[in-house]
Amino acid sequence: MNMYLLAAVQSAESGTKIGIGDAAVTAIFGYCVVFFGLVLLMCVLYITGSIFKSKESKAAAAKVDEKIVEKKPEPVPEPPAPAAPGSAGHVKLYNVPDKEAAMIMAIVADKMQTPLNELRFISIKEVK
């Protein structure tokens, strides 16, 4: 395989046409190189991802422990967010004006081709 590839390289350097066999080997080898590079990157991303996930879970566990030790008084629950006007059920809105909430619900209903009164929205929250 290396000999074929070398032949392809040499003929490319001379600026001439390359043979079909060389072209096939170069194409297969090139495709493999792309896969190898991206698989390598995938492995690195999985490793870094798992490191970050474990760090996050440790941090979350540490917070829970602190809470238990300190036995802080439970925070007063926030008053329930206002329900969106004109919708079925109780939709809690977090940092979303009524008009925008109504528009979002209408768009979702339209995209899903389902009447609004057959959909149930639990909450709408602005993701920053």
């Binding site: 046409k17 390359i18 079909i20 096939a24 170069t26 495709y31 896969f35 991206l38 698989v39 995938m42």
Partner: peptide, 24 residues
């Protein structure tokens, strides 16, 4: 993996171009 797989056309067209007489 999908990003890698979708480079198949690059190498098939390369091979096709060689068949049609283009230089490497």
């Amino acid at each position: 993996l999908l990003g890698a797989a979708a480079q198949m056309g690059v190498f098939l067209a390369f091979f096709g171009a060689v068949l049609l007489g283009f230089t490497g």
